[in-house]
Amino acid sequence: MAELKKYLEIGSSPHITDGASVDVIMRNVFLALLPVTVFAIYAFGIGAALVLATATISCILTEHLLCKATGAPSTVGDWSVAITGLLYGLTLPPGLPLWMVAVGGVFGVGIGKFLFGGLGSNAFNPALVGRAFLQAAFPQAMTHWQYPFLENRFEQVPTSVLAMPFAEPAYDAATAATPLARMKFEALFAETPELMAGLTTGSVGETCGVLILLGGLYLVVRNFMNWRIPVSIFMAVAVMTWIFQQIDPATYPGPLFMLFSGGLMLGAVFMATDMVASPITNPGCWLYGVLIGVLVVVIRFWGGMPEGVMYAILLANAVSPHIDNLIQPRVYGTGRGVQ
């Protein structure tokens, strides 16, 4: 069969398409991200807008220049790298110096995507690769959180955002505590209305779970996203948290807190669903989602850091080819009921 295939077809499957090309999908993802982005800029002001713009521009420029350098046609026109950049920006703390934002963008797209062979070949979600690099390189800057809804957020750019390249950022105010940091270090995990409405601090685009869910719903309805991945992540997190809360309600928070705090919503809806780095089959997606959910809970409860969504997704990305190996789609006309 394998030999035959080589001669019979040039492109890989699927061969019957519904006309959704990369740029159509990506434009829809952009639409879905729009409310989250607008809310992020509203909550964190000019600083967040600059971070998002720098993230997107650095990713697009990196891809464009690398394509030029290797003599390949530029692939920035398909919107995918722009989405990567925007998503990457949404995962960053609002007061991050712009030069660090650019470094992470270059690293994420250059090493996380381009060196693996560009769109369709990346093993890991490039946005998260960029963020993981920053987390390891600049741990202090990556855990400095600005308060949301500051009075002067539309008039004044935070000092740290405009730090000179290679210089240590100076901060206008002490760091705010994210809901997860309060859970880890102060054992506070109330399911407050602020948390549900996204009025807490955190990364630029992770705070408002409702808007993220809305964006995800839009993509699911338009059939541009495999709903099984976020649903299985949410279910795994909720079930596991619920069990532990039953055992020791003083130590472990409830499912609602876990679902709406930190980057879980953003990660589950927009990061884990990366079409390239997630498994192909539906049962594979269930397994992949459960794996991410369990890892998130394990890292948040017993890990050294308060948040673990990024590492959980990257680890599951690494496992996803093996999941595909394990769960092969049934070839049409074989298996069940065929003698």
Partner: peptide
């Protein structure tokens, strides 16, 4: 570098 250089922790790890 002048004072206030931001070290890239990852590089010594």
């Amino acid at each position: 570098f002048p004072d206030g250089f931001q070290a890239w922790t990852i590089m010594v790890l």
